[in-house]
Simulated assay, not measured.
Amino acid sequence: MDFSDGLVLVGGVEVGTARMTWWDEADGTRLYLLLGSVDAAHQGLGYGRQILAWLEERAREHAAGDSVGTPMFGVNPESERDLALARAAGYRVAFTRVRMIAKLTEPREVRLPEGFEVRPASAGDHRAVFEANAEVFASNSLGYVQDSFEEFEQEIADDYPDHRLWTLAWVGDKLAGWVVSGQDDTPWVGVRPAYRRRGLASALLRANHAQLWAHGVQTASLWTLAENPTGSVALYESLGYRVVERQPRYRRRF
C-alpha cells in the first residue's frame, strides 16, 4: 500500500484517500482529525484498517516533534461501516454536536429580568463579545477552539455583519449576555456565570427571535452540544427548538 498526495494506492490502483489535519483546543487538547475513505469497489478488503493505522502513525510522528497540547486522535464516521471500524479501533463518542431549529412566529413583548438593558449592537461591541465568548466557552465547551480576535472579526465580516440581528444585554458597561445571529444561523449564545439563573438567556433568545422576525427571518437555527453542562439543549427546547441533526465526534487517546 502506497500513500501519495492524499491518495491510497495498491499495486498502482487508487483504492481510497487519506488525509490528516490538526488543531489546538481551549482545554489543551491537540486534536488530530484523521480523514480516510475506501472506494466502494475496494471495500471489505481491510484497506480501511490499514489507512487508519497509517494515519495514526503519521499523527504520532507529528506529535513527537511538537510538545504543544495533549494529543488525541479524532474521527468522524459517516457510515455504519466507518463507525464499526472506529469502534473496533477503540474510538468512543467524546461529545455530540446537535443542530436545532425553531419556527418563529409573530413575537409578543419581551421583558428582560430587572437590572439588564439591551442596547443596539455595533462594531464597537466586537471586542466585548469576543472576550465574553472566550471566558464562557473556553472553560466548559468540549472541542472549543479559541480563535484570535482578528479571526473572530473576519468571521463576523463574512457571515454575521448585520448588527440588527444581534441581541446584547448589559449591566452598566459589562456585557452580561449575548445572542449573535445572522440570517441563517446563530453561532453564539452566552451568559456570564455571574448573571445566570435569572432567566436572562431565555429572555435574550426571545428578544433575538423578535429581531429576526422583524427582518424577515422565519426559522432560527443553531448548533450546541448534547453534553453541555449548562443544559443548553433543554433551554432551547423550552423555546421551541427541536433537534434536526446529530454529529457524534469520536476520539481516542494516543
Rank of each mutant, 00 (worst) to 15 (best):
Y250E: 07
L175S: 07
L165K: 11
V68Y: 04
V15H: 05
A64T: 04
V244S: 06
R30Y: 07
E245V: 06
T21V: 11
E131K: 07
F95M: 05
G11P: 02
S232E: 04
H42T: 02
V136F: 07
W166N: 11
Q43I: 03
T70F: 08
A18S: 14
V179A: 07
F73K: 03
R58G: 01
L204Q: 09
V136E: 02
A194T: 11
G11W: 08
W23P: 01
V233Y: 00
P71C: 02
R206C: 00
G65Y: 12
S139F: 05
Q43F: 00
H42C: 04
Y241F: 14
H126W: 07
D39Q: 12
V244K: 06
F95Q: 06
G90E: 10
E227T: 01
Y91M: 10
R108N: 14
L104H: 06
L222E: 10
R97F: 08
W223H: 13
A176N: 06
H209M: 03
L200K: 00
L175Q: 11
A94F: 01
Y47E: 09
N133L: 11
G48L: 02
E117T: 14
A26P: 09
R92K: 08
R196F: 04
S67W: 11
V191N: 10
L55V: 10
H215S: 04
W23Y: 12
Q247W: 08
D66I: 14
E57T: 13
S148R: 11
T17P: 03
V15Y: 08
A194L: 05
V15A: 03
H163V: 14
E25D: 11
L165P: 08
P77Q: 08
E131S: 07
R253H: 09
G44E: 08
F116G: 05
R249I: 15
R97T: 08
A234M: 00
S122V: 00
D185V: 03
R99H: 10
A157E: 13
F254G: 01
E57N: 13
T224V: 02
F254S: 05
L222V: 10
N133P: 00
T219L: 06
D162R: 12
A121S: 15
G12K: 12
Y91K: 10
Y144C: 12
Q247K: 12
E61N: 11
S141N: 10
R253P: 01
A89S: 09
W170K: 06
S37F: 01
H209Y: 11
F130G: 04
G28M: 09
R246F: 01
F95I: 02
